[in-house]
Amino acid sequence: MRVLGMISGTSHDGIDVAVVDFDHDLAGDALGARIVHRSSVPYASGLRHRIIEALPPAPVGFDVVCELDTEIGQAFAAAAKQAIEDTGGVDVVCTHGQTVFHWVEGGRALGTLQLGQPAWIAEATGATVVSDVRAADIAAGGQGAPLVPLLDVRLLASATQDGAVAAALNLGGIANVTVCRPEADPVAWDIGPANALVDAVVTDAPGGATFDRDGELAARGTAVPMLLEALLDSPYFTQPAPKSTGKELFNLGFVRSALARAGVEPSLPDLVATLTELSAVSVSDAVRDAGVEVLVASGGGVRNPVLMRRLGELLPGVRIVTSDALGVPSDHKEAVAFALIGWATVHGLPGNVASCTGAAGPRVLGRISHASPPPPPIASWPETLVFER
C-alpha cells in the first residue's frame, strides 16, 4: 500500500510531504517501508502571513477560520496532487493539517484544532484521506501529542534490544522527545521551544527573514544570562510528562514578557543566541534527566549547527545521530510518521502510544474519507518495521 503523509508543523512555513510504500509480510510479521518521494512545499507568502496573524493571542472570527480552513486545504491538495503526479499514484493520503490552537489548561489537553479541509485533498487526488488525527487521543484523556512515537518506538527498537536507553528527538517549532528503555513502556512529551521562539523574533525583526538560516545570527551573538534565566523560569519546564505545548505559550509575547522581567534590551544576534541556548539547555536537561545514552535527532533544528553543537557540549557521553542513519530523512521524519499513522488507520490499528500521550489506551486515529473500499483490518501491529535503505 502506498501512503502519502503530509504535515505543516509549528513553524508554519509550509508542507512536508512523504510517500511511503508499505509491504506487510504476513509470514514474517514484518512491515516493510520504502520512501519513494519526499518534498517540502512552502506556503505562499500571503497565506503564511495570514496564518501567523491568526495565531493566539490574536482574536479571530469564524470567517477567518473558515477562510484559512479552505485555503490551507487547497494548499495541501495542491501539494498532494503534485506528489501523486511525481510518483504515479497513492492509495491513501494522511493529512495532519496545520495546528492553529492546542487547548491546554492545568497541564491537561482539552482540545486541539488543525485546519486544512480534507475534502479539497480528496477531490484533487481521488484517494482515501485520513484527517483530524489528534482528536481521538484527546477524547481518551491523552495530550494528543506527540504522535510520532508510533514511528519512534519502531526506529529505536534495535538500540533498546542492545540494552541502551534510546530517545528520538524532534527539533521542529516545538521540541519533543520519545524515550525508550529496555523492557519498559516508552514515554514521550513536548519539551518546549526548539525553533519557535527564534522564528518569532526573526520574523518580527526588519529584513524579511523568517528563521535563523544555518544559525548565522546565533553564531554572531552571545547568550544573555539574565534573559536566559527569565525564559527558563516558565512553569512548563518543570511540569511532569506527559505534557504538550505549542505557540499558545511559546510565542513572541512569551519573549517580550521575559525581556521585561530581565530588564534587558539585547541586539537581535544576542537575543537569537539566548533563545537558541534556551532550546539547547531545556532539551539537554530533559535528555540527561531521562538517562538517555543514544539520541536520534530530526527536524529543522538539525540544520542549525549552533544548536547541534551546544547539544553535543551539554550532553557529553550521549551518542547523537540523526534519523538519516536509520533510513528516515531527518527533514521529513514527521511526514513519514503520518504516512505510518494513515496506514494504521485504514487497517483498523491504533496510531497512538498511550504511555506517551497519557490516553486511557490505544485508539484508532482520525476520520476517513473513503474514495475506495477500505482494506481488511489487521488483528495486531506487525512485530517489526524495516525501512529499505
Rank of each mutant, 00 (worst) to 15 (best):
A164C: 12
A230G: 01
L228S: 12
V177M: 01
A194V: 10
A188G: 03
W189F: 14
N195V: 08
P225I: 04
V202R: 00
T222Q: 08
I191V: 15
L217S: 10
A159L: 14
A166L: 09
A205Q: 03
D185E: 14
R220N: 08
I174E: 10
V177S: 08
P186R: 07
Q239K: 04
D212Y: 11
S234C: 03
G172L: 12
V224N: 07
G192T: 01
V179K: 02
D185F: 12
N176Y: 00
L169A: 09
A164M: 09
T203Q: 11
V187Y: 04
L197H: 11
F211N: 07
A230K: 09
R220W: 01
I191C: 02
A164F: 05
Q161F: 08
A219Y: 11
V201Q: 13
I191E: 09
T222C: 11
L232V: 01
A159C: 13
D204L: 01
V165I: 08
A205E: 08
E183S: 02
V179R: 04
G163F: 00
A159N: 13
V201R: 11
G173E: 10
G221R: 00
A166I: 02
T160E: 05
I174D: 01
F211R: 04
D233A: 15
Q239S: 05
A166T: 11
L227C: 05
A218D: 05
T210L: 14
L197I: 12
L231C: 07
D204T: 04
N195Y: 14
A157C: 10
A196K: 11
T160S: 03
G208D: 04
A205F: 02
V201G: 08
P240H: 12
A219Q: 15
Y236N: 09
D185T: 12
R220A: 12
P240E: 13
F237G: 07
A164W: 00
A184I: 02
R181W: 15
F237T: 05
E216G: 12
D162M: 15
A209M: 04
D162Q: 14
A167P: 05
V165D: 14
L231E: 00
A184H: 09
A166V: 03
D199L: 01
E183R: 11
F211S: 09
L169Q: 13
V224G: 09
A164Q: 07
A175N: 04
I174Q: 04
L156G: 14
T178E: 09
P206R: 04
T238P: 08
I174G: 12
P240W: 02
A184E: 15
A230T: 06
A205N: 09
I174H: 06
A218R: 02
E216C: 06
T160G: 09
L228E: 15
G207D: 06
V198K: 07
L169C: 07
L156A: 03
G208V: 13
P235I: 09
V224Y: 02
T160N: 10
Q239L: 07
A184W: 10
C180Q: 06
D185R: 06
A205K: 10
R181I: 06
T238S: 15
F237P: 07
M226R: 13
A194H: 09
A196W: 10
